[in-house]
Design a protein around this nucleic acid. Structure first.
Length: 133
DNA sequence: CTTCTGACGAAAT
DNA sequence: CATTTCGCCAGAA
């Protein structure tokens, strides 16, 4: 029997949100990074999940950014809001490139105990291009 | 029921 | 360096 909090069989979005909620203040994770931890998930799906979050969600959506260390915003704007929240947490943006330094604020993911307890397994291969190989 | 579409990212071209 | 292709969830119309 799985632990009561196991998310091994939970919907993908739920698994994504669970991981995102573990990102500590002052740190950031990328869409692809979260997808890899969730397993059977792509960076795009993480983006979809973030976009589907209701206003006032307990998920720290502002700590999820793209691989270039920049903020990905929805059509329309609101990006300044996200940057403001991150800077308030101590995340520094290079004024020249408008990107963050992953070596400085990059998140390494939950500790192995958390992952194991919630039924997450090491992410296998996730983006096989072409039909094989 | 079907169709549309939205915070991404890596490899190939 | 710029563009294209593909992965394939969830909710609205």
């Amino acid at each position: 029997m799985q632990p009561p909090n196991s998310l091994k069989h939970a919907p993908v979005y739920e698994r994504i949100y669970a991981i995102a909620r573990q990102i500590p203040p002052g740190k950031v994770a990328t869409y692809g990074q979260i997808a890899a931890m969730v397993g059977s998930c792509t960076a795009r799906m993480v983006g979809y999940a973030m976009a589907a979050l209701p206003y006032g969600s307990d998920v720290p959506w502002q700590r999820v950014i793209n691989r270039q260390g920049k903020i990905s915003l929805r059509a329309g704007g609101g990006g300044s809001r996200q940057r403001q929240l991150l800077e308030a947490e101590g995340v520094h943006f290079d004024p020249k490139t408008d990107s963050v330094d992953f070596n400085q604020v990059g998140w390494s993911g939950p500790d192995w105990e958390w992952l194991d307890y919630h039924g997450f397994q090491p992410a296998p291969v996730w983006g096989r291009r072409k039909d094989e190989k």
